[in-house]
Design a binder for these strands. Sequence first.
RNA 1: GCCCCGAUGGCGGAAUCGGUAGACGCAGCGGAUUCAAAAUCCGCCGCCGAAAGGUGUGCCAGUUCGAGUCUGGCUCGGGGCACCA
Length: 895
Amino acid sequence: MNSAMPMQDKYIPADIERAAQQHWDKTGAARAVEDASKPKYYCLSMFPYPSGKLHMGHVRNYTIGDVLTRFHKMQGYNVLQPMGWDAFGMPAENAALQNNVPPAGWTYSNIDYMRSQLKSLGFAIDWEREFATCTPEYYRWEQWLFTRLYEKGLVYKKLGTVNWDPVDHTVLANEQVIDGRGWRSGALIEKREIPMYYMKITAYADELLTELDNLPGWPEQVRLMQKNWIGKSTGVRFAFPLADNTDEKLWVFTTRADTIMGVTFVAVAAEHPLATKAAANNPELAAFIEECKKGGIAEADIATMEKKGMPTGIFVTHPLTGEQVEVWVGNYVLMSYGDGAVMAVPAHDERDFAFAKKYDLPIKQVIGRPFFEIRNYEPGTPIPQQQVVGSSEFTTEHWQEWYADKQNTFCVNSGKYDGLGYEAAVDAIAADLAAQGLGDKKVQFRLRDWGISRQRYWGCPIPIIHCKTCGDVPVPDDQLPVVLPENVEITGAGSPLARMPEFYECKCPKCGGDARRETDTMDTFFESSWYFLRYACPDNTKAMVDERVAYWCKGGIDQYIGGIEHAILHLLYSRFFTKLMRDVGLIGNLGEPFANLLTQGMVVAPTFYRELDGGKKQWINPADVDVVTDERGRPTGATLRADGQPVVIGGTEKMSKSKNNGVDPQSLIDQYGADTARLFIMFASPPDQSLEWSDAGVEGAFRFLRRLWKLVHDHVQIGLVAASTSNEGLSAAQADLRRKLHQTMGKVADDYGRRKQFNTAIAAVMELLNAYDKCDLSDAAGRALAQEVLESATLLLFPIVPHIGQALYAELKPGADAGLAAFPKADPAALKQDEIELMVQVNGKLRGAIRVLAEADKATIEAAALANPEAQKFMEGKPARKVIVVPGRLVNIVA
RNA sequence: GCCCCGAUGGCGGAAUCGGUAGACGCAGCGGAUUCAAAAUCCGCCGCCGAAAGGUGUGCCAGUUCGAGUCUGGCUCGGGGCACCA
């Protein structure tokens, strides 16, 4: 900043943004160095997938992070804000298929472009810590960790189910299965079981669950979602002996053992061994099992499809009644849950009820609900004790909500268990099953082990060698990393690695014989599960992490910011990894990785379309549309700018390619500058809510910055003075303005620091400047106050709009660097107020207002309120029965 | 289907611990300035009503002196559901 030059009278963002960014680069303003003498603040935003260019969601995410980064820097913290690239993933392979470019080259060029975009937004990122996860320097360490975990038994191999495209001969992601068909081939997808590697996350289920209670800095909803996902439940696991007198047993798990006397059939998954056995000499059943294998593996699809089943002809013995119960195959039973079999109690489970009605299976009521009645009730008397007069009516005609109730119900038609409530019945039944050696209480988790094998190319190779004599052998440390070859041809049919002998042919590290390298790669959640630790020491070529992790991550990363869509998987896996790495001895006990979490909302925009022949919609970008409004500003229609013809106004939806409603951040930056983009995004809505795009709102943000520039410019023209430091010499109106200034300092610091709500912080500064505009500041004391207001407002806004902040502050205080300034702190003396205004209510309705001394006692306030003419009018001469005084707020007279 | 969240003027939103509903901004309307326009500045702006006043925070109940905020029941919209990231 060259303060010798006269101040530009126009706000020209391009000039000041370039200058500010050069200044920060030159001074290394964003560089983070470990410094034990200062409190640290590690501010982390979820790293982007390098898809090509930044989208508005990125800009929002990283602006939030940058505001918190800059605010904490001004508060005296040693701040780290890193950035990197989640660089492995499917889109690179799709791009390769479409444009015939290798995934590596595509990814690296995207990274280069997106890095330049991030730089143009002026984020205070320490670029010296940048890395991409697709480089061997990064992924070698997760291969190394994988081999450690494999040796500890925390990684193991078992069969897993995948979406198989029988035409393209390839495994598809859930996203690539549309209405049960492959997205490219259109073929009906089948379930196929293949061997895969699994991470034993279930071994940490209890710790992952209980630690959620130690995360007060997380949104309650995210903790709740994770809790439900882990899904700890206590129930009974028990067995139905097969009725054929062999020793074989069919095991099931239930949380409703109290309904066990109502079991009328048992359902098993299509892949269950018993189903396979029964199908051996039952072609009809075999055909049904085949049918169950049609379709994808996504749970949402399985849960919403029509429930179907078929009897197997196999009977099992009810462990308590000795009755014969038939085994059915059900398409809704998942092999991956528990034992792949469930007891069916149609009377008390809604799904079983529907199934029993469909196949005409018996429904046996074993739970009753007491029915209450109030007898001899006299209107006007207190309601007497309710009296149980019997059980609510049960009918098999239709399902009623209470059938599945656990509370206020008791066993009926259940022999010795009759009359017992839920808990007592479960205890008694579990004890009886245990006595026979046929079952016991069991804690079960919904959480399943994490399958990490992917039959894809653009990912981290799994470091395993398959040897005919030695079995699966982890790649020894001195042969790591297993480097992913970058020059490959992507065909869309299977993994190219499996067609590259130069990749998979190898020697067994144990016996030296011919062996085959694993060609599957890892789930890309693997990379994102530990990147935040690597930022502390990205340059270490000898170890995965080092002692710098202890400095930056002590007590957890201070702030993590990212989309709510990652609430479960990414955050759960990252928590899991932190515990794994602790147990492998890599890091001390850091506890939870993310102390504070902010989940930002989506960026949405209006949609416009035209209906084409055949009902297909042609989506039109909002930038090409003019909206027509009536005289009150309500939209009445819209036209396409190119031809002036009408288009249909659709809903407001998440910005996406498919709805063509995306706004390119680059055009915004080019037109208005980074500060306007940042300001609009922070002002439009609080960070955790969805943000609606508005071109007019962007204009408004730009207008505000231009106005701010002009206010400072006009002041500087008259001449700089020393900022006021007390109320001395101020008029009453000026003292009011100064009080507002200091109130605003407190408000903005609280909004940035505690509330993380930036829209209200901006609104508060706007209010301050509105008051500044209306106040006469022409005398000497006023000039000093003007200087104080402008200096402070510039610093208050600096975290959000740092470029203009840097420039204006240097104009107001020649030679000063806003980025190094301390955040303004409210002066208690300026906040003092003699008189306050209280609202007066009569019967809860606002009727008037009174002014009283700030220290007035309750009696004085009551008297003033009762004397208020408006209050008296609405009391209509009635005496006040009660007067409620809420200090500093209002008086409510109950008449 | 299951888990979680949300709903306030024409629009985005504010009201932080149950206490003035609509701050701030956008759009709109009226005016000033201008040869004119842009830009800028000033004023108005929930709904009904001439006013007094009434009414109003998705819908239906409830708790309370007082409910956008708390409780129960719905409706609609969004996120996640384990291979999108």
